[in-house]
Design a protein around this nucleic acid. Structure first.
Length: 916
RNA sequence: GGGCGGUUAGCUCAGCUGGUUAGAGCGCCUGCCUUACAAGCAGGAGGUCGCAGGUUCGAGUCCUGCACUGCCCACCA
């Protein structure tokens, strides 16, 4: 690759080129390792996006974090498997295809089940891969050879196996219960799929005449239409107001049905009138009360939310139309005695938004308590840790209050329940279709028409993707997976279910003891858990902190952002904003800034190549031959700036590794950003320019070039997990398109070398920077022409510091625009316009002078601050408690600072005297 | 009804286990096309850390209360 690069970095073509390269070269494929594999293993399961999915910012954040962690582990020598796939997403996909059919004027039911499913598969083939293609564009370093789909034959077989086993263990049962019914989707849904909303509603009071007495009993309800299905009125046994009515009956208005007055704790004396209507077929509490009292269950609302035949004259009406009519009739007949404003909570279907109807229905359920118990224990005992920590309690609370899980759905797209019904009434649960009924021998057995909740199959993925129910080598090596990175939204839907299923079905599993476990998780004894750690990432909001949603129209399309700023810049934005535990308000101006960062890197690379080609043509860092091979390679620390940049690089490397260890992505990203731009580009490159350009000393120029190259190459590796594309592009260019490794992604991640940390160099460099900045500052104030070089006078008391400045005189002169440094023996503090620090006084000699009035103002302000700080310091140093209790390091620091401040104070004071 | 976050510069956010002078990006002001980069360089202004108490030698950081704000969970008519 040629080294003549365009001035402006254009990410588009470069990014797609490397994205393709990574996939076609299969760089991230992990074949099943043979016995004897001893590398530490890192396994990450991708939360499978829906086949209907399109990438949004939440995905992008999730994927960026996963890819950073994955690339980082891979570069550190882990056997790293990132397992991708997609979810069939029952309801979502079925709705999508039905909508498509509707445009052709077709209906699912007219087509029939088989033809419809055929159609969904076709749809999946055509559009289902879209999100996977988008993942490639993001640079996700997944193993594409292991890509799965939840309805693949092997995964479907595993689903049936799980169902049958749970059934045989008595953990799956079928029965008629109140479920959340979505009239829109025409199926039962689980508690989790119901979203509650508070709305302004009414609480109606209706009086029911007591049979054989001249009185009424008044009940309150928010859903008057359900009264048509009332089968009792309940009062509390202890409620004296109703003692005389125990055992009596009331006549249900409108329906003219006699129903009993029962005593039950369902009725609380404090609420309303203390009497409550009981509708066992349409309310979960009433359902339980109905069972206690053997009440009939009269269904008055059907699966389309219309009133059923049981609703008499109201049959056929929509539930809300019926409510209106019922109220009118009650009012007219004098039964409606009250109507109050009341805040009611309604449940809406997560998918389609229809108000959910509690409805009596025969469904399949999982008995959750035994599974939840183990899933609770796994987290309580630290076999699984959840980060950030506060989510742990949320998880445990949920587990604690969990209800049985309704797993059957009245849909066509999904895993069909492996149960067969015989005309004799027998239900046969089996792995494969039975030839005949196991009870009566009849051959008229028909498979259950329901399918399983989508989350049933995705809850199994940590082991089914590794070959379960077979015992496989993959399981030995990769199970338990190491980490899960996911959104809070699916903590219960998915994470909790994986823990329950994993612990249950992988009980007794042992990971191959030969493979090293990821650090920190090696001591956990139980290998049944699906993962060792869960990291919950933040929610991405829009710039106004609103949750992004299609209805609000505030969705930021990541592909659009990528098209304008590049994937690297977008990834960097998300990483830099992702402090654990806090949501991200996505702000495009940040992305623009990180595009500029990419451009900065690009131009630094141009500068480097330009110089290498001249002073050291063909030079390449020999990563293969490097001892320990992970840090900076081929750098000869000849000068202060070399020692300084090496020290800085190693310190930053240390911080970055530590930050990634605890998912502080923002800190890792910022560390690299500040190092690369603020130190490497702003100072190091500027400092070595004279050496690079020194034609008189080619050897020194070559060394400078090699150093530049060595630092740059290592910095690219440090940055690679966050910005994989530009780092790959430049890294490959460094090796002239012929590196010893196929990709920077396979090169070692930098590790800090403590020996290269150099506090002295960092302190010395800080002094020089301080001096240079002071001179620049004065120049700006004096409005010295940028190109004009000026002489300065310098007073330095400390001999070492003076020596330091003398040794680096040419650097100081060049970077500060100085043509001559005159060291003087007496303080310049009294001189108007001179600058002073605790370490030096500097005076810029120029025809124009600082405005004395302005200077005095500034000095007064400065003095005020100094004295305030001195006061604070003195107060602390005079405080015996402080001296006794504060750490020596802190006390020492304050002492030193106090000394400096005193020096400064004197300088400022004497100058103010002089200016008076 | 429970639970969990947030409140720091004009804007968007950092600030880890309490410790010397509270930071960054964007925006703003001044000056520069300095032979890598104007998507850049140099310099600068800008903060009673939501409010009130408390703990501590020391609080943006810990505790209590309050205010505003966001989210999650919940079968009370």
């Amino acid at each position: 690759m040629a080294h003549d690069l365009p001035k402006i970095y254009e990410p588009g073509a470069i990014e797609t080129r490397w994205a393709d390269y990574w996939v076609t070269e299969k760089l991230f494929s992990v074949p099943t390792p043979p016995p004897g594999e001893t590398r530490p293993v890192f396994t990450l399961l991708l939360p499978p996006p829906n086949v209907t999915g399109r990438l949004h910012m939440g995905h992008m954040l999730n994927h960026t974090q996963m890819d950073i962690i994955v690339r980082w582990h891979r570069m550190r020598g882990f056997l790293t498997l990132w397992l991708p796939g997609t979810d069939h997403a029952g309801i979502a996909t079925q709705m999508m295809v039905e909508r498509q059919l509707a445009t052709e004027g077709k209906k699912r039911r007219d087509m029939g089940r088989e033809a419809f499913i055929e159609r969904v598969w076709e749809w999946k083939k055509l559009y289902g891969g879209a999100i996977l293609e988008q993942m490639k564009r993001l640079g996700d370093s997944v193993d594409w050879d292991r890509e799965y789909f939840t309805m693949d034959e092997n995964l479907s077989r595993a689903v049936r196996e799980v169902f049958v086993r749970l059934y045989e263990e008595g953990l799956i049962y079928r029965g008629k219960y109140i479920v959340n019914w979505c009239p829109g989707c025409g199926t039962a849904i689980s508690d989790l799929e119901v979203k509650h909303e508070e709305i302004a509603g009414k609480l109606y009071e209706i009086r029911y005449p007591v049979v054989g007495a001249n009185e009424f009993i008044t009940v309150a309800t928010t859903r008057p239409e359900t009264m048509l299905g009332d089968t009792a009125v309940a009062v509390n046994e202890k409620d004296v107001r109703y003692k005389h009515l125990h055992g009596k009956k009331v006549l249900l208005p409108l329906m003219n049905r006699e129903i009993p007055i029962i005593t039950d704790d369902l009725a609380q004396p404090e609420f309303g009138t203390g009497a409550v209507k009981v509708t066992p077929a349409h309310d979960p509490n009433d359902f339980q009360a109905g069972l206690r009292h053997n009440l009939p269950q009269i269904e008055v609302i059907d699966e389309q939310a219309r009133m059923s035949q049981n609703a008499g004259p109201y049959a056929g009406l929509d539930r809300y139309a019926a409510r209106k009519r019922v109220l009118e009739d009650l009012r007219q007949q004098g039964f409606l005695v009250g109507e109050k404003d009341y805040t009611i909570s309604i449940g809406k279907c997560d998918r389609c938004g229809t108000v959910v109807e509690p409805r009596l229905s025969t469904q399949w359920f999982i008995k959750i308590a035994p599974l939840a118990q183990r899933a609770t224990q796994a987290v309580e005992q630290g076999e699984i840790t959840i980060v950030p920590e506060n989510y742990q309690q949320i998880y445990l609370n949920w587990m604690h209050n969990i209800h049985d899980w309704c797993i059957s759905r009245q849909l066509w797209w999904g895993h069909r329940i492996p149960a067969w019904h015989c005309s004799c009434g027998e239900i046969i649960v089996a792995r494969e279709a039975p030839a005949k009924c196991t009870k009566c021998g009849g051959s008229e057995v028909k498979q259950d028409t329901d399918v399983l909740d989508t989350w049933f199959s995705s809850g199994l993925l940590p082991f089914t993707t590794l070959g379960w129910p077979e015992k496989t080598r993959d399981q030995e090596v990769f199970y338990p997976t190491t980490l899960l990175i996911t959104a809070y939204e699916i903590l219960f839907f998915w994470v909790a279910r994986m823990i329950m299923f994993g612990c249950h079905f992988m009980q007794g599993h042992q990971q191959d003891p030969k493979v090293k476990r990821a650090s920190g998780w090696g001591d956990k004894k139980d290998d049944s858990v699906p993962f060792r750690q869960v990291y919950i990432h933040a929610l991405v909001r829009d710039a106004e902190r609103q949750k992004m949603s299609k209805t609000k129209g505030n969705v930021v399309d990541p592909l659009d952002v990528i098209a304008r700023f590049g994937t690297d810049a977008t990834r960097f934005t998300l990483a830099a904003m992702a402090a654990p535990g806090t949501d991200i308000a996505f702000n495009e101006s940040r992305t623009e800034g990180y595009r500029n960062f990419a451009n900065k890197i690009w131009n630094a690379a141009r500068f480097m190549f330009m110089n290498i080609d001249r002073v050291a043509p063909g030079l390449k860092p020999d990563l293969a031959g490097a001892q320990g091979g992970v840090g900076v390679v081929g750098v000869n620390a000849a000068t202060l700036e070399d020692r300084w940049i090496l020290s800085r690089f190693n310190r930053v490397t240390k911080n970055v590794n530590e930050a990634l260890e605890t998912y502080r992505f923002h800190e890792a990203a910022n560390q690299i950003y500040d190092f690369f731009w603020g130190e490497f580009c702003d100072w190091y490159i500027e400092l070595i320019k004279p050496r690079l350009l020194d034609e008189a000393d080619p050897q020194s120029a070559r060394t400078a070039g090699a150093n530049l190259l060595g630092i740059f190459e290592a910095a690219l590796r440090l940055l690679h997990p966050v910005m994989p594309f530009i780092t790959e592009e430049i890294w490959q260019a460094i090796y002239d398109g012929n590196p010893h490794l196929k990709s920077i992604a396979l090169a070692p991640y930098p590790q800090a070398d403590e020996k290269q940390l150099n506090l002295a160099a960092e302190t010395e460099m800080a002094i020089l920077q301080d001096l240079i900045v002071n001179v620049r500052n004065v120049r700006a104030e004096l409005k010295v022409e940028p190109k004009q070089r000026v002489p300065i006078q310098l007073f330095v008391e400390d001999a070492d510091i003076r020596k330091l400045i003398e040794q680096n005189q040419s650097s100081v002169q060049r970077l500060a625009g100085v043509d001559k440094i005159e060291f003087v023996d007496n303080s310049l503090a009294k001189l108007s316009g001179a600058r002073h620090t605790a370490r030096f006084d500097v005076h810029v000699i120029y025809e124009r002078k600082i405005d004395v009035a302005v200077e005095r103002l500034q000095l007064n302000k400065e003095l005020e601050q100094i004295e305030k700080e001195i006061g604070n310091g003195q107060r602390q140093l005079n405080n015996e408690q402080f001296l006794a209790k504060a750490p020596a390091k802190v006390v020492e620091g304050i002492r030193k600072r106090a000394q400096e401040l005193t020096v400064l104070q004197q300088k400022v004071k004497s100058k103010l005297d002089e200016l008076r």
